[in-house]
Simulated assay, not measured.
Amino acid sequence: MTSPVGLHRVVEPAGVLPQAATRLDAGREIGADEVRIRVERLNLDAASFRQLSEKHAGDGAAVRAEVLEIIASRGKMHNPVTGSGGMLIGVVDEVGPESPLPVKPGDRVATLVSLTLTPLAITDGLASWDGRGEQVPCAGHAILFARSIAAVLPDDLDPMLSLAVLDVCGAPALTARVVAGYDRPTVAVIGGAGKSGSLSLAAATRAGAGRTVGVVPVPAERDRLLAAGLATDVVLADARDPVALSAAVSGVLGGPADVTVVCVDVPGCEHGAILATAEGGTVIFFSMATSFAAAALGAEGLAADVTMLVGNGYVPGHAELALSLVREVAGVRDLFSARLTAD
C-alpha cells in the first residue's frame, strides 16, 4: 500500500514524512500512484553547494565524493548541514496506473519538489561532473509520489536554463503576490543579481512595485545587475551587517523598504533584512541559510512590527510565471545565461 505523501518510502525514523527522514527507500519498482524518472541532471541548491564547496576548499573531487555519499546513505540528496537539496530534470520512465501527475512516459520533466524528499539513486558515480558547479549531469532514477509536482520542460528554452529557473520559481511567484497587496510599494531584494533575486526583482516590477532596490555584495554583481536593468537602484552592502544593509537601502529609498526579499545563500542576514524593512512591512525569506529562530527573536528584540514569510517554494502557477519572466525580460535571461556559462 502506497502513501500519496511517500510514507511507504521512509526507512528511518518511522512515522516521519520523507523530507524529515534520515533515509529513504529509492528502489526502482514503483507503486500504483508513483512515477519513476530517468535522471539526467541535478541542480543543487545554492546554500548546499556553497557549504560543500567551502568545506572542501573548492576541491571538486571531494565535493563529488560527498554528494555521492549523501545520496547513497540517505536515498536522497539531503545535505545534513544546510538541510537543503535542490531539484532535477529527467525523462519519465514509468507511470503507475493510479498516478494523478499529468505526465507520461517519454516526457522530459523538471521536478518541482525538493531533492530532500525525493527518493534518488545514482548509477554513474557522477563521472561527468567536476564538482565545481551547481548543475550535476548524472545517470540514475528518482521516484515521485502522488502529492509530488513536476513540470514538462518547454521546447523553446534550453533544458539547463529551464532547470535553473524552475529551481527557484517559488521566489518570484510569492514576491509578486505580496507586492500586489500594496499600492506601489518599495521593494528591496537582497542578493538581487542571483537566480531567485533577479526573478524576484522582475516579478516585483511586473506586480506594481513603485521602486526596486537590488542589494549585492561586490562591484562585479552591481555592474551585472545595472546592465540587466532589473532594479531602479543597485547598492553595495554586506547583508550580514545589519546597520550597513539598512543604511544602504534607506539611503536610496529615503527610508526602509515596504517589502524586503532575502535571496542570499549565506547565514546571518536575518537582522539586516528586518532592520531594512518599514513598520508594517513584509520580509520574505527565500534562503535555505536562514535561521528562523534568529529572525523571530531578532524582530522581537528590535521591536519590529513586520510580517515575516517563509518562501516554501510552492505557489500555484509558479513555474509558468518564472518561465514567462525569462522569456519576456531580457535582463533576467541575460543574468541566467551568464551564470550558466560561468558554471
Rank of each mutant, 00 (worst) to 15 (best):
L17G: 10
L225M: 11
V109T: 15
P4F: 05
T277A: 07
T277L: 09
T232D: 09
P159R: 11
L253K: 02
E221V: 05
K76S: 00
A146F: 07
D59H: 13
V81K: 08
V109P: 07
R36M: 15
D59T: 09
R23W: 10
V213Y: 05
E300W: 03
D124S: 02
R9P: 07
K104F: 13
T22N: 08
E54I: 07
S48T: 09
R224I: 12
S198R: 01
R222V: 06
V329N: 05
M87R: 11
G313N: 01
V81D: 08
T123W: 03
L225W: 09
T260M: 07
R28C: 10
T186S: 12
D343K: 09
G131R: 04
A180M: 07
S84Q: 12
S48F: 03
S250C: 11
V92S: 15
E94I: 00
V136S: 00
V266Q: 10
V249A: 05
G86N: 02
A14D: 04
T260W: 08
L325M: 13
G125L: 06
V234H: 06
G313A: 04
S287M: 08
G75D: 01
L161H: 04
W129L: 11
E300Y: 04
A150L: 15
V16R: 00
L24Y: 03
R177V: 04
A247W: 03
E134K: 15
A171M: 13
A142E: 01
L174Q: 14
P100H: 01
T111M: 14
F292D: 04
T260N: 10
V152L: 14
L68C: 10
S128P: 10
T282D: 00
E69R: 15
S162E: 15
